[in-house]
Write a protein that binds this DNA or RNA. Structure first.
Lengths: 281, 281
DNA sequence: CTGGTCCTCGTACGGTGTACGACGGCTGGT
DNA sequence: ACCAGCCGTCGTACACCGTACGAGGACCAG
């Protein structure tokens, strides 16, 4: 306020604060637009193709322009992750808790399959608004299984963990690595299909499989594929265990529970969460 | 054979083949030594600190020397991953299949907690020998639950997926991001402890939590932490479901089953798996 | 000694994230 | 109308990355 040259830590000097993104925003750019454009690139060419220069070029602006709207690339990834999470919020939550958990899990799974880059971004502690909305939806379901809040969280986490772990394994065992066959029918993704059943590399298992690893060997001769994609079965087992532990859980009562996501325009809302001066905490 | 100038695709020109690593190996370097040194760096300073130059410097050699033993950095990561997997193979598998699965899962989990970088490396389809050994151990247990090989794989995958998903969430919600507090008592890792219970950023949930997200709000006032670490409970639920689906599963018969990993020196064996000319398939 | 293979590594190129500071245009006070 | 001052843009530069290329030393067989 006094010295104009001093940029200060507040919204003034080169960085707006963390609150709502469009207070004035004379620019047609916004953190959310950056995130969406970055997602477009990541979907089409993989996460590695998302560089600041590339993103800037795709938006028709200079590279450093991005740094006015985003602190650094890490924040861009956070915004992408938030946008990703917002993409699979449910409009209406099924009444039956098993059906509801299954639906949330499968929606999340499909979302990962549509945006494989998200798994690489998932290894980050970011908690954006859509993350909280996602948890809220889970909570709406878990509250029908038990009244203990801690138990609710344990249920939510177990389901979510299974989803993430399973999807991570499936996607990482697909081709997906070589960037040349990007976005090639990512639609239904018959997970079991194209990948080689077992053999990691030609001539490799010949030396390892025969001697030790007898069970793997017999498994291979039995014609099994290492990637049996029965996610639903694993989820079913987990839910069976949860149900057995909570016999009093209410199944399929009347109304489908009001969804936590109120209006669809809220979903994509981008909020820059940080207001610290720099990366150092 | 004819023209000596031609390097050829075989083991001759600049790259040895994929078979056993020390046929002659006049060098004191080896893929395995590179991997171990890289793991040391990653443990101490994070995966981002593992660069070819840094690794070469830590080994006291020139940067490009590494490329004689390793095709590219990707292969180095594969070797690290293989070494990581070899680090938590069981010497003896418990007789009871539930106990065995629990032990394998917890060993894996602890291994991830000791080497957080491994989660970032986990997003890769690499199948090294230790990966196969690991699967073999799982198979040794699952074969006592069912005789259907496909079902065995589903069981294995479900347990493994839960481990990976849970550990990924826990680790990514810890500090772990800022590299300055690396390797700070990674031992017991009371996961619930230090992290802030909910609040993502100060002043953030104030605007989001109150309006929508009622359940999250009430959860917070109830004093719950978002990261209740009950991995064992989730695993228990899953095993309950598996057990219920397989009532004939043999529990705790006599001998503890011969472990698949025969001798400890096999564990760390590094094998370069690729022999393709270059990355392009 | 000579040729060949194994192994090492210096240099260089194109890529990355981003710190710094210059600069134009809009806005508001006078 | 003027002009200070912020908003937003962006060119340049730097350090670092992975690695292609090829020179050259160490060793061994003839």
């Amino acid at each position: 306020m006094t010295a104009p040259a001093e940029p200060a830590v507040g919204p003034g000097g080169r960085r707006r604060a963390g609150q709502a993104p469009p207070p004035g925003y004379r620019s047609n750019l916004s953190p959310q637009r950056l995130a969406l454009a970055a997602i477009e690139i990541a979907d089409a060419e993989g996460l590695a193709a998302v560089s600041m220069r590339r993103l800037a070029a795709s938006l028709g602006v200079g590279t450093m322009t991005l740094y006015y709207h985003v602190r650094d690339k890490d924040e861009l990834l956070d915004l992408m992750w938030n946008e990703f999470l917002g993409g699979h919020l449910l409009d209406e939550i099924p009444a039956d808790w098993r059906a509801a958990l299954t639906e949330i899990a499968q929606r999340t799974r499909q979302s990962f399959q549509r945006h494989p880059w998200a798994l690489n971004v998932a290894v980050r502690p970011a908690r954006g608004p859509n993350k909280l909305r996602h948890i809220e939806q889970y909570l709406a379901v878990a509250s029908r299984v038990t009244d203990d809040p801690d138990e609710q969280l344990r249920i939510i986490h177990s389901v979510s963990d299974l989803v993430v772990g399973c999807t991570l394994r499936e996607l990482s065992s697909q081709a997906y690595r070589n960037p040349d066959e990007h976005a090639d029918e990512h639609a239904d993704a018959d997970v079991d299909g194209p990948a080689s059943p077992l053999e990691p590399q030609p001539g490799f298992d010949a030396l390892a499989t025969a001697e030790e690893l007898p069970r793997l060997q017999s498994l291979r001769t039995a014609g099994c594929r290492l990637h049996s994609p029965r996610f639903e079965q694993a989820l079913g087992w987990l839910l069976d265990g949860i149900e057995a532990a909570h016999p009093g859980a209410r199944r399929a009562d009347a109304r489908p529970v009001d969804a936590a996501a109120p209006s669809p325009d809220h979903v994509g809302m981008a909020v820059t969460t940080r207001m610290l001066p720099k990366k150092g905490a």
